[in-house]
């Protein structure tokens, strides 16, 4: 992940060294930190924005949603990236600091359910997902779902999850198990979105969840049946935009109080068609359908 900083940093250094001589005094720097899910997009935005508004530099770093939010509360960054909403505890901490966080939805991410390419499963319901992942859930074998793993593969469902402070982990828990739901312990907890997909690719009995942007040709994306429509919905940018896919989460940016000046201009640009085309190009869904 940290390797990703380098091109952005190099660009920033370049931008500063070029622009500094011309008009160093009026240059503004926006500090932007948070979710690793949003890191790639945030860097792409920062790079593109340096050509849109050369007077403004956006410094991007990762560290996780929680890290970004606490930095925003402490006033060390202007913009926090988050792949989940702020928790009650964080809102309380902001209140104690006299900060009123303002939330902006900058895109959507569909969390796809991944299985091995040879797994014949055609769709899965939210209840079944809860039965597999939830504490006390009874689904532990593929045969309980009417699925036989081909080539004599093991019948046991190998649950792949994320480390417990990732925004993806928290969002999947909320969406599938409910706000106070608990995961069944004993899942394989991977340390990155890509690691989940890699493990599922190599393990015939595995099931995992990860951002849609990490899909490859070597794994299968299972259509999810939501309680509302009753029809299986394949995760895609389109189904995330029209909100028919049930496990799509908003990607957020938080500011401390209503943004002003350069930060407000930057957010406006991110939400413009130009900015939204960049998030689409990175494999996430824009906030609205683009032409």
């Amino acid at each position: 992940m940290h390797r990703n900083h380098l091109p952005a940093l190099a660009l920033l250094a370049l931008a500063t060294s070029c622009g500094g001589g011309v008009n160093g005094a009026s240059r503004t720097v926006i500090q932007n930190k948070g979710s690793d899910t949003l890191l790639n997009v945030a860097q792409a935005w920062a790079e593109a924005y340096s050509t849109v508004n050369p007077e403004c530099t956006v410094a991007v770093s990762g560290g996780g949603s929680g890290t970004g939010i606490s930095a925003m509360i402490n006033g060390t960054v202007d913009l926090a990236n988050a792949s989940r909403k702020m928790k009650e505890r964080e809102l309380a901490a902001a209140g104690e600091n006299g900060v009123t966080p303002v939330e902006f939805v900058v895109g959507y991410d569909a969390l796809a359910v991944y299985v091995h390419a040879a797994n014949p499963i055609e769709s899965i319901t939210m209840e079944q997902l809860a039965g597999i992942y939830g504490d006390g859930g009874s689904l532990v074998r593929w045969s309980q779902l009417g699925v036989t793993i081909p080539n004599g593969g093991s019948d046991e469902i190998v649950r792949v999850s994320r480390q417990n402070n990732s925004g993806t982990f928290v969002y999947f828990r909320e969406a599938v198990l409910g706000r106070e739901g608990k995961y069944k312990l004993g899942s394989l907890d991977m340390h990155g979105s890509k690691d989940v997909v890699d493990l599922v690719e190599n393990t015939p009995g595995a099931i995992g969840y990860s951002g849609l942007a990490y899909a490859t040709d070597h794994v299968k994306l299972v259509p999810v049946i939501s309680a509302d429509s009753g029809a299986p919905v394949t995760p895609s940018v389109d189904t995330a935009v029209d909100r028919t896919y049930p496990i799509a989460r908003p990607l957020l940016m938080y500011t401390a109080g209503q943004p002003e000046g350069a930060v407000a201009e930057y957010l406006d640009w991110i939400l413009s068609d130009d900015g939204q085309r960049i998030i689409l190009a990175k494999g996430y869904a824009p906030v609205r359908a683009l032409d």
Partner: peptide, 19 residues
């Protein structure tokens, strides 16, 4: 069976935990 070690837990979780 799969397990998790004490050391691995620190390594995996400390980086993204709020100070």
């Amino acid at each position: 069976d799969q397990v998790r070690a004490l050391t691995a837990t620190i390594a995996a979780e400390l980086g993204e935990t709020a100070r």
